[in-house]
Simulated scan of single mutants.
Amino acid sequence: MKKIVLIVFFIIVILGILGYNYLYQDHRDVVTSNATASYTSSELIDLFTDQDSANDTDALDQVIEVSGVATATSTNSITLDGQVFIEFNTPHKVALNQTYTLKGRCLGYDDLLEEIKIDQAIVINPSN
């Protein structure tokens, strides 16, 4: 009887450890990940606003590069061409009306604000 209780106890402990590791996996590191695709802001907007939702999976929850002109900035975010909102990993100084190339994780299209959301972004190349 004691053997059965011990075996059941160890099985429960092992299942608990496996379940915990499955639920609390490490987050994706966007900085070290390679981008799966590169878009201009207008191409990305067209991709999400067309009627074919199958196209959205090309960028959705993927690490992508996007380039465009900064139309709104703050220390923690930038908006490219008025429709691509990008949140930085760390604060950055960016200037308005300059072209930037950024890498981040695409969260998708926000219907309410009519913006594409990208987070965990870093500046790849500030252009003049």
Rank of each mutant, 00 (worst) to 15 (best):
Y20R: 02
D111W: 09
V63K: 01
R105C: 11
L6V: 15
K93M: 12
D29N: 04
T79Q: 01
F85K: 05
E115Y: 13
D61T: 15
C106T: 08
T75F: 15
Q62M: 11
T36N: 03
L6E: 10
I78K: 06
L113D: 14
T79L: 04
D119E: 00
D26M: 05
Y22V: 15
T101D: 01
A37S: 07
A72K: 01
T57V: 14
Q83P: 10
I118T: 03
I124A: 09
I118Q: 03
V84S: 01
H92R: 00
L113M: 15
K93Q: 14
Y109S: 08
I12D: 01
L18S: 15
T36A: 12
N97Q: 07
K3Y: 13
N97G: 12
L107W: 10
Y100G: 10
V84A: 00
L96M: 04
G68E: 00
L96K: 07
L18F: 13
T90H: 08
V8H: 00
D52F: 12
A37P: 02
T49H: 02
V94E: 00
H27D: 15
T90C: 09
I124W: 02
I122L: 08
H27Q: 15
E87H: 08
G16P: 02
R28A: 12
S74H: 02
S127P: 09
D56M: 10
K117Q: 13
T90P: 05
H92E: 15
L6H: 11
N21R: 00
K103G: 05
S74N: 00
S77Y: 09
D81L: 02
L18Y: 14
T49Q: 06
I12T: 12
K93P: 15
E43T: 06
E87Q: 07
A54Q: 07
A121G: 07
S33R: 06
P91R: 02
N76S: 13
Y109I: 10
Y109R: 05
S42I: 09
I116P: 05
